[in-house]
Amino acid sequence: MGAFKLGKMTISGLFKQPETVQYPVQTKTPPTGLKGHVTNDVTQCILCGICQKRCPCGAIEVSKPNRTWSINRFRCVQCGSCVRECPKSCLIMEPTYAPCSTAKHVDVFEVPEHHKSEDVIKTSE
């Protein structure tokens, strides 16, 4: 019994470094395995559509005729299934969060015919 059981911890807290960071002036470095956002290295993509089939949220749309691979980031839950299942390992989970969006849109990646990295164009719809 007795009060002020937390006294020691509270007083020593006055002399310790803060556990929080002054965001956004300071930021923490994201850990390497962080599930940030999915990107596609389109030079490798063969538009097989497996990622679209595996995605539990219907976030990915692969269009063979238009040669596009698109992702609706508002639907994606960062589960990582597409990254694991891609046969060409061209999907990557980047360990940074995508910047905030100001409008709803779908990220469309155009997949080049001859797999040259210079041809990569990313547009937003």
Binding site: L34, K35, G80
Partner: peptide, 21 residues
């Protein structure tokens, strides 16, 4: 959690048949 699974609340680290990481 963030370091070992990549998520803080939702981890998506279990799959049928084992774990993914």
């Amino acid at each position: 959690f963030e370091k070992t699974t990549g998520g803080r609340v939702i981890f998506s680290v279990v799959k049928v048949g084992g774990v993914v990481r």
